[in-house]
Write a protein that binds this DNA or RNA. Structure first.
Length: 430
RNA sequence: GCGGUAUUGGUGAAGCGGUUAACACACCGGUUUGUGGAUCCGGCACGCGUGGGUUCGAUCCCCACAUACCGCCCCA
């Protein structure tokens, strides 16, 4: 094999692309109900945009960024996630201006890139759908975002989800907690795993994310961030929980949950699912939260934001694993069987006529025998077959056959060309 | 970035250091020549991921590389 697709990428072929269209279309329709509008931003951005937003110590920046220098010696990165580019666009286009109603709500859909080792549901090029809402600090907006994500899964027929939430608090809360965590972990430094020792120096909160067995006792006994929330942060979080309750949304508070990107604060959440398709136990399929400092960080006003991102590859794996059938309808109305080269012109006119009436039609282009053409018509599940040969050509007629009933009738070409929809309707029921 | 397993036709796959690379599905053709979903018959890899090496000889042994899958890291 001479050429192969780049590592960690995949071709989405017919048969599979219909499923993609379905989940994408479902998202578009649902998000429109929530008054979120699509935004399309570049697939690559200035490297610094991602470095700034994700945090210099995050893995995304330190080892997963798909970056390169372009011919103008600009440091470019393929977007590893959607939020940073959207925030950049929000700021650059001054979408925070007074002419736009707040919150400013957008969604995006498209490929993301991370340079890492591919595995099931994890590729270098993967796709996310995500939403962002700017300009309101209301806890109700946090809840709207969570509820919308859940509604999406519900619409697709996915159940048995688990919603985990946590609060990282505001800047002060985080600072206080960070110190408390360091004070707690430092004495145990030598007992921590190697990775966690590094995390402690760079980003102590990430120690809580550790899955190393030796870290577990310390993670379990670590101080909870919820005890370090300022009154304001506490109030916000309590309100979020109350509002979730009022919508009857089940959730668990996981005070050790830390999201991979540093820009989050206040509410963070993950929607997890327990499916073998994605590995053992509960796996995150959707994650999000608040990022109140990010707009300012990227040069905009001090405005808040909240959103989520959702991995489409994982979603599709999940749909397959749950045996959820994607409604696909691309049946064929008419297959034209032409017998002999002399019918080539009329066959083409026939399929075009049917298509012009707004129906689907196809024909043979390989000059195959009638039997073979019928076989194909059957395989593609054509409702009707229109046959034309020398005899029909001479009489200016066609044979019109219902594949379901086997019934066949001779119809004048003139009649067919002017009244196809009526003929179609007449035979459809029979 | 680290470790493990794998790589045979359109697909699922069997196979052994040695002159025809099983079998099945799909596809194509035929079954008295203008009609489908059945049966039967026939065709369909000068080639076994790529590049080297060992050997009289390699798809089967060795090395490197590529890719896929699994685990770690991390995450969607």
């Amino acid at each position: 094999m001479r050429y192969q697709r780049p590592k960690g990428t995949s071709d989405i072929l017919p048969g599979q692309s219909e499923k993609w269209q379905y989940v994408e279309e479902t998202a578009r329709l649902l998000f429109a109900d929530y008054q979120y509008h699509e935004i399309r931003t570049p697939i690559f951005e200035n490297f610094d945009i991602f470095a700034r937003s994700a945090g210099d110590t995050s893995d995304v920046v330190t080892k997963e960024m798909y970056d390169f220098k372009d011919k103008g010696d600009r440091h470019i990165a393929l977007r590893p996630e959607g939020t940073a580019g959207v925030v950049r666009a929000y700021v650059e286009n001054k979408l925070y201006g007074p002419e736009n109603t707040k919150p400013y709500k957008v969604y995006y859909l498209g490929p993301m890139y991370r340079y890492e080792r591919p595995q099931s549901g994890r590729q270098r090029e993967f796709h996310q759908v995500g939403v962002e809402a700017f300009g309101s600090a209301s806890p109700a907006l946090d809840v709207e975002v969570i509820a919308m994500a859940l509604a999406y899964f519900k619409q697709l027929g996915i159940s048995s989800l688990r919603v985990a939430i946590n609060s990282l608090g505001d800047e002060q809360s985080r600072k206080d907690y960070r110190q408390a965590l360091i004070d707690y972990l430092q004495p145990h430094f030598n007992e921590l795993s190697h990775d966690s020792q590094e995390r402690l120096a760079k980003n102590p909160l990430r120690v809580l994310d550790s899955k190393e067995p030796e870290d577990q006792p310390f993670v379990a006994a670590a101080p909870s961030i919820l005890d370090y929330l300022t009154d304001e942060a506490k109030q916000h979080f309590t309100r979020v929980k109350d509002l979730l309750d009022s919508l009857d949304i089940d959730y668990v508070v996981d005070s050790t949950m830390v999201r991979g990107l540093d820009y989050y604060n206040h509410t963070i959440f993950e929607i997890m699912v327990n499916s073998k398709a994605l590995g053992h136990g509960y796996t995150t399929i959707c994650g999000g939260g608040r990022y109140n400092g990010l707009v300012k960080e990227l040069g905009g006003p001090d405005e808040s934001g909240v959103g989520f991102g959702l991995g489409l590859e994982r979603l599709l794996l999940l749909l397959d694993a749950e045996n959820i059938e994607v409604p696909v309808q691309n049946h064929l109305d008419v297959y034209v069987v032409g017998i002999g080269e002399s019918t080539d012109v009329e066959s083409l006119k026939l399929v075009q006529a049917v298509r012009d009436f707004g129906f689907s039609a196809d024909r043979d282009y390989l000059d195959r025998k009638p039997k073979a053409q019928f076989k194909t018509a059957n395989k593609v599940d054509a409702a009707f077959v229109v046959t034309i040969g020398d005899e029909e050509l001479a009489n200016q007629t066609v044979h019109f056959k219902s594949m379901a009933s086997g019934e066949e009738e001779t119809i004048a070409l003139d009649d067919f060309y002017s009244n196809f929809p009526q003929i179609y309707d007449k035979y459809l029921g029979e």
